[in-house]
Design a protein around this nucleic acid. Structure first.
Lengths: 211, 211
DNA sequence: GTCTATACAAGGATAGAC
DNA sequence: GTCTATCCTTGTATAGAC
């Protein structure tokens, strides 16, 4: 059946090439940084001539922005709703677990985002100032309402969010350090489970929530 | 009196030049990455001709390693001792506060270290496998003894250490994100104080320690 | 010890053939 | 739409004058 497929389905080839290029670019941007990544190496990894990469993305900068955009969008999809009536323990636990899963499943995405922010977020200022700031304020308002209702300890909501981000993303961004120090080759399912439980225990416990 | 100083104190000029180069390199490595940093820009920032930089450090790689080395040594100096007889709340609080101070005072150092680890720690494998692993195991043993003595909740000691690292260094590494989202230009003394209190409240509280 | 000039390589981007 | 050949810039490193 594969053979029977019409080869002139150009849209499919195009989409596949785009996908290959983005994946190769993501890998190389993590390991070598923006400047350290050559279009040639991306082309090689994607199995295309160099000029074709520049045909799909008009410049290295444009390709990098496309990679960033893909990451942001993927993260946005995982935002779950919370409301004032919810149980904070339940919502925070779900959010922490979701963030750990994302970090373990897409470590390169987390790393590229981290590299961009650490270097001063030259390409994400707008996103931080608009989308992300709005998101944080909305969620903070709800957390604050939980505090006002006496459902949890008075922990600054914005910094509680930063804390969840830092602890969860750390397992992706700093995997080289964590794995080397703990003498492991990679995380296994048990590790992931233990990490989730530990983060929930400490963070929820620290917020005065039953664990 | 400045004028009276003998200008032929070559050792002094040498040390000053070295220091200027290292500071300029640190700045540029953070903003532009290793490959994105040119020796020319470092030379300009240090007020020297390009060739002089290569006279002090035989290659860009050697200069980068010198920067890394400086960072590691600076951090090692701040390691304080803890023992089985100590009060966990006191020791952990002091460690968290010291790490926050370091992050706020030397953000570039934290960022370069983070960049190196995120990119796979190609130049720090040895350090992680030997020095750092040993350090973590020693401290973990003591934390475990506190747990065995019933002084605190049973939180995996190694991951507790990772958690302290991630939450404290986050304020240096992700300052661009945190400041933009919270709409501030820089951290002030009150912010630092609040960050310390918040981290201690959540982490110590999560470990079942009185706060 | 310090600086100028330059060799040499790598890489981004484009022009133009197919 | 795809690929080859090439231009041009940038950057590391060195050789050698001062």
């Amino acid at each position: 059946m594969d053979i029977a497929e019409a080869p002139q389905k150009t849209g499919k080839i195009r989409a596949q090439n785009r996908k290959n290029i983005l994946a190769a670019a993501e890998d190389s941007f993590v390991k070598n940084g923006f400047k350290g990544t050559s279009m040639q190496s991306i082309a090689d990894a994607a199995g295309l001539p160099k000029a074709n990469v520049l045909y799909y993305f008009k410049s290295k900068q444009a390709l990098y922005l496309a990679v960033l955009d893909e990451i942001i969008n993927r993260w946005d999809e995982t935002i779950e709703d919370m409301s004032e009536g919810d149980d904070p323990a339940e919502v925070l636990r779900a959010y922490i677990c979701a963030k750990v899963d994302l970090a373990i499943q897409y470590p390169s995405a987390s790393k590229i985002f981290a590299l961009e922010i650490i270097q001063g977020a030259p390409n994400l200022q707008e996103h931080l100032r608009t989308n992300l700031r709005t998101w944080v304020r909305e969620k903070s308002k709800i957390i604050q309402s939980w505090i006002d209702q006496g459902k949890m300890k008075a922990i600054d909501p914005e910094h509680l969010i930063f804390m969840i981000w830092s602890t969860t993303q750390h397992y992706a961004d700093f995997d080289a350090q964590i794995l080397t120090v703990t003498n492991k080759l990679e995380y296994d399912d048990d590790d992931v489970q233990r990490i989730k439980e530990l983060l929930c225990t400490v963070i929820l416990g620290g917020c005065g929530l039953n664990v």
